[in-house]
Amino acid sequence: MSQVPMVRRRFVAAGAAALLAAGPGLTSPARVQGLAPTKSMRGGANNYLPGAPVVDRIGGGGFTMSGTVRRAGDGTPLKGIRIQIWAHTVEGRESEVRSHGATLTNADGIFQLDMPQIVPIFGQPHGHLAYDSGGFRTVFLRPVMASARDTSLSAHFVLEPA
């Protein structure tokens, strides 16, 4: 008669115990190393015009671009950070000055800017956001809308000192 080297029940129990012991370490390395900085996305800087003014809203509005800005490492929300936003919208193309605007984050590190409806261009409905003010390392984002009919889009920044 052959002997089973390990009973199945004990094998499952041992596996579960090992997962429980190692689990938190496997799933949240960020807690150990700190919040990683956001990397620029491919094509994020396309049609960027530096120095867009802070505005209440781009054009006539109707579409909401929002997001958060935090500091790398401890994740502290950053206040008063200038985020530049541009996109191909119903009112203008990406390369046009009137399609560009900037806004500042509030005390909770949240920014929100009203802008014209984004329409697909170059095969995807997408927006562009930039942090390019000097204090932290420059980041360009290019979020894509899940649907061209969406009326909002968000993008989040984790910045590291320059």
């Binding site: 094509g43 994020g44 800087a45």
Partner: peptide, 23 residues
């Protein structure tokens, strides 16, 4: 035509650095 419409996007596509797979 697409290169005239948006030079940086076409440059990304031609150099295989575009964010879009269809490029």
């Amino acid at each position: 035509g697409l290169g005239i419409a948006s030079p940086p996007d076409m440059l990304d596509a031609l150099t295989f650095t575009a964010p879009t797979l269809f490029s």
